[in-house]
C-alpha cells in the first residue's frame, strides 16, 4: 500500500466563530472516523492545526494570515495508507465532516523512491 496525505481545508473564519461545544462535537466525529480507519488498517497519523500562521518568503515574514484570497485554508492533515489514489479518495470521502460539507480534503500521494 502507498501513503497519502489528506490536506483538510475549511473556512477558518467559521472555525474561529465556533463554540467550544461545536468544536468538541466535531472532534468527536473525527475520533470516530479515525478509529474506523485505524481498524481497517488505513490510518497512519494526523492532527488538527491551530489557527495562528505566518507566511515566510524571500523578502519578509507576513504574520496576518490566512494568505490566500479564498476563505478556506488548511486546518489539519491526516496520513493514510491505501491501494491507490482512487481508494484513498473513497476513504477520505467517508469522513463525516466531509459529508456535512464542513471540510474538504485534498488527497495527495506521498512521493516514494
Amino acid at each position: 500500500m502507498k501513503k497519502f496525505m489528506l490536506l483538510i481545508r475549511e473556512d477558518l473564519r467559521l472555525l474561529e466563530q465556533m463554540t467550544q461545544e461545536q468544536s468538541e462535537a466535531d472532534i468527536q466525529k473525527m475520533v470516530g472516523w479515525v478509529e474506523e480507519i485505524t481498524q481497517s488498517g488505513n490510518f497512519v497519523q494526523g492532527d488538527p492545526l491551530e489557527n495562528g500562521m505566518t507566511l515566510v518568503t524571500k523578502d519578509e515574514i507576513i504574520s496576518d494570515g490566512p494568505f490566500i484570497e479564498a476563505k478556506e485554508a488548511i486546518s489539519g492533515f491526516t496520513i493514510i495508507k491505501a491501494e491507490s489514489l482512487q481508494q484513498a479518495s473513497e476513504i477520505a470521502s467517508s469522513c463525516p465532516l466531509v459529508h456535512t460539507g464542513q471540510i474538504k480534503m485534498e488527497v495527495r500521494p506521498i512521493m516514494e523512491f
Binding site: 488505513n42 491507490s84 481508494q87 473513497e90 476513504i91 467517508s94
Partner: peptide, 8 residues
Amino acid sequence: HPRFSPKQ
C-alpha cells in the same frame, strides 16, 4: 476490489 474503501 482495491478500488473500494474498506467501509464501502
